[in-house]
């Protein structure tokens, strides 16, 4: 499998200094839309590349799940960032972020219907036709479902992966959040997903608010999420785990401890 190996972290400007100080870091993810297509890369990312740290461009605005064809300018941007970072893999979401001329500002779920499968596969194919490297697709966390689902989550995702040949970017915090908010067992999904297709897994912390668990990326990774990473690894160890943190940044020691915990549960080399 092409793609990252080991424990990585989502690169964000706010923690660039912390990330630069991780001696064993094998890879980072960078939000593709945060990098200008014409370059240059942020200096800290260039320094990481020169150290041999791999970069996975992670798109958040392609809207592969839109019923309309994916915006070719946005695909071209992801292609440019993949080339700028000399990436071996890019990733995006199974979601839509805009419709009818309005931006939602966040990743929204698709109906788990055959029509939606067809739409998202067509868009993934359009992106794959331009991308120089493979793509991994990430299922999202959502607080609601569409009223007319024809497939369950595992069948929906497997169908999309089978038809596109894409890798899976499995976000364990999303699996946890979705199951918790629906009173379901997250292991049921893990047991039915094609785990051998996982290119890497996301891990993040969230918070309970208004009766729902929100995947905020602004809290420490909780014990149940870490345990679920363990359950994933017990079934099929993914090549890489990535910690996502998007705000409310803790002291460096706390972030290092989270990375160490990921290495321990995943049986991967310590990077701190």
């Amino acid at each position: 499998m092409t793609g990252p190996v080991g424990v990585g972290i989502g690169w964000r400007p706010e923690i660039a200094g912390f990330v630069a100080g991780l001696p064993g870091l094998p890879f980072v993810e960078v939000i593709a839309e945060s990098v200008p297509a014409a370059g240059p890369l942020p200096a800290e990312l260039t320094a990481l590349r020169e150290r041999g740290v791999a970069v996975v461009p992670h798109g958040v605005r392609l809207s592969l799940g839109s019923a309309e064809p994916v915006d070719s300018a946005r695909v071209a941007h992801l292609v440019a960032v993949a080339e700028l970072t000399d990436a071996a893999l890019v990733s995006e979401h199974i979601a839509f972020v805009r419709a009818g001329g309005l931006e939602a500002g966040h990743l929204l779920p698709l109906p788990r219907s055959r029509e939606a499968v067809t739409a998202v596969c067509a868009n993934v194919a359009r992106a794959q036709a331009e991308l120089p490297v493979p793509i991994a697709l990430e299922p999202i966390a959502a607080l609601f479902d569409w009223p007319d689902d024809e497939l369950d989550e595992a069948a929906f995702l497997t169908e999309i992966l089978d038809r596109t040949g894409a890798h899976l970017l499995l976000d364990i915090a999303n699996v946890y959040a979705n199951a918790r908010n629906r009173g379901a067992d997250p292991l049921d999904l893990l047991d039915r997903l094609p785990l051998e297709r996982v290119a890497y897994a996301h891990v993040a912390g969230g918070a309970e608010q208004d009766g729902y668990y929100h995947d905020t990326h602004t809290s420490p990774v909780s014990r149940p999420v870490l345990d679920l990473v363990g359950e994933l690894c017990a079934r099929h160890r993914p090549p890489a785990l990535l910690l996502e943190r998007d705000g409310n940044y803790p002291p460096a020691a706390a972030l290092r401890a989270e990375l160490d915990a990921l290495a321990a549960v995943g049986g991967l080399p310590v990077i701190t």
């Binding site: 839109s66 019923a67 419709a99 001329g101 309005l102 929204l108 939606a116």
Partner: peptide, 16 residues
């Protein structure tokens, strides 16, 4: 009934 229209209606309900 189309996916496009239903996605548009959902986004409008969420943000507009």
């Amino acid at each position: 009934t189309t996916l496009a229209a239903r996605q548009a209606a959902l986004v409008a309900a969420l943000v507009a």
